[in-house]
Amino acid sequence: MQDISRRKFLGLMGSAAVLAGLGVAGCGGSGSSSDSGSADAGAGDSGSSSLSGTIVCSGATSFQALVEDAANKFMDANPDVSISVTGGGSGQGLSDVKDGKAQIGRSDVFAEAKLEAADVEKLVDNQVAVVGMGPIVNSNVDVDDLSTEQLKGIFTGEITDWSEVGGTAGPIQVINRKPGSGTRATFEAAVLQGATVPDSWKPVAEEDSSGTVVEKVQQTEGSISYLAFSYYDDSKFKALSVDGVAPTAENVESGDFKIWAYEHCYTPADADEVTKAFIDYMLSDEVQGELVEKDGFIPVSGMKVQKDADGNISNK
């Protein structure tokens, strides 16, 4: 009897091992399909005048929808072109384009922040949109404006009660994004201004996605977090103004609202014809004048200020 149940356990172990094996095979599979994609694209640009080929575009999820919309329009106009837009995060996008697994790597942050200088030189930075971000709070919080100093205090754990910033007394529940998230990097660069977060302090949650942030802020009394403008929804939470400046596209363009970042599409320096054509299309009026705003982003062309990889802002 004991033997039978032992065999059963071994069987269970075996199926677990097979499942693990399948998982590994799955990962390998996705990698190799991107590889074959680049091979196709290489074959596609051999001399013919009409565009054909395959583009793999992986990376940041924050503006994946924008690139997907543009890709669908581009594929409608060029039936021989196939563009597959996948997620994975900024780190993945930069890794993929660096390693040649993707023709375009999307990132919320400058490649300088994640890659070695030697690798950055081999890539071309195409800034396809600007995204504004701002602090948001639970709808019950009776504060409408915070100064950058106050935000810095809240996100380093120095200010822990709403009464310290002019609201009704109650603990401030800080909900962060994961370290490495582009949204967090942008927010912290603008708000913390070099201040370090003490080891002893920690937020009540660190979320993997903006979608969960929306849900958690909506549900948690006294919570504060930050989101890109494209996620703003007055019925679920309250967006704060910073230093008296409202979080609007106009204020970002004029440079009055300081929390914003570029959405980057990195391509290799020796990108093939079809990839270049798609990037040109992303930067054309058709996308910049219409899709970008429709999806909640800000066209780069409208910006009166610019930012470099070190975060320095200057007038254009």
Partner: peptide, 8 residues
């Protein structure tokens, strides 16, 4: 969650 942000 770390894997999506780390570069190879």
């Amino acid at each position: 969650s770390g894997l999506s942000n780390a570069t190879t």
